[in-house]
Simulated assay, not measured.
Amino acid sequence: MSAKDPFRPADDAARALARKLIAEARYAALAVLRDGAPFVTRIALAPGPDGLPVTLISDLAPHTAALRALPDCSLLVGEPGPKGDPLTHPRLTLQARAVFATRPAERTTLRDHYLDHQPKAQLYADFADFHFVRLVPHSGHLNGGFGQAFRLMAEDLGA
């Protein structure tokens, strides 16, 4: 006997909540494969000019090498509120592909936009070992609270 799929197709409210979670996220949990095993870390985040997540990572971080070796990753956004059970607060898991900004014009655009949301990163944003990375989702799972689970595709997220 198969279990009932708890995820429903996205509707307008689910798409709006998912985009809001990305727009408001300043930190996220990033999961990569490192040496063949799962590895999760916290990263700083900002919505890019297209509304999709952007981060700034250093060559010194283990997840940077992992993303260069295998750009497929997962990202969890959505912070628990100040009250109540943390598992009742909305959260979004994205399955994404890391795309490193390599063209100078792209890097400048992402830099300016990122620093608008993460001004403290000004201290190290121009270091040679730091890289802007777009996290381009191909799917997602939104848990909007009890009984509010949705499956999202790239087009639902604005990709």
Rank of each mutant, 00 (worst) to 15 (best):
A28I: 07
Q118W: 15
R19Y: 12
V40P: 03
A23N: 05
A154W: 06
L52S: 06
L87M: 10
E24G: 04
V136F: 01
L87K: 09
D50G: 03
V32C: 05
D156A: 04
A96D: 04
V136Y: 02
V40Q: 01
L21P: 02
L70F: 11
G144Q: 02
A149M: 03
A128G: 06
Q122F: 07
S139H: 12
A96C: 10
F132T: 09
R26Y: 10
L17C: 13
A128W: 05
P80H: 05
L33A: 14
V40A: 04
M153A: 00
H131T: 11
D50S: 05
L123S: 14
N143Y: 01
I57Q: 09
P62M: 11
A128F: 10
A105I: 13
K20D: 12
R68M: 03
R134F: 07
F132C: 08
R103Q: 08
Q95W: 07
H138E: 11
G140C: 06
T88G: 07
V133L: 07
D156T: 10
P62D: 15
M153N: 02
D85Y: 07
A23Y: 05
P62W: 14
Q95T: 11
L135A: 04
F150K: 01
L94I: 07
G140R: 00
P119C: 07
A28P: 01
H131M: 08
A96F: 01
G81E: 05
L115Y: 04
R42P: 11
L76A: 06
L110R: 03
K83S: 10
L17D: 02
T109H: 00
R26G: 09
L21E: 00
L70D: 13
D112A: 12
S139T: 11
R26P: 07
I57C: 15
A154E: 05
P47N: 14
S74L: 10
A66Y: 15
E24W: 02
D112H: 14
L70R: 13
P80Q: 08
A61M: 15
F100G: 02
S74Q: 13
L110T: 04
D35W: 12
Q118R: 15
F100Y: 03
L60W: 15
G140V: 06
L115I: 10
A31K: 00
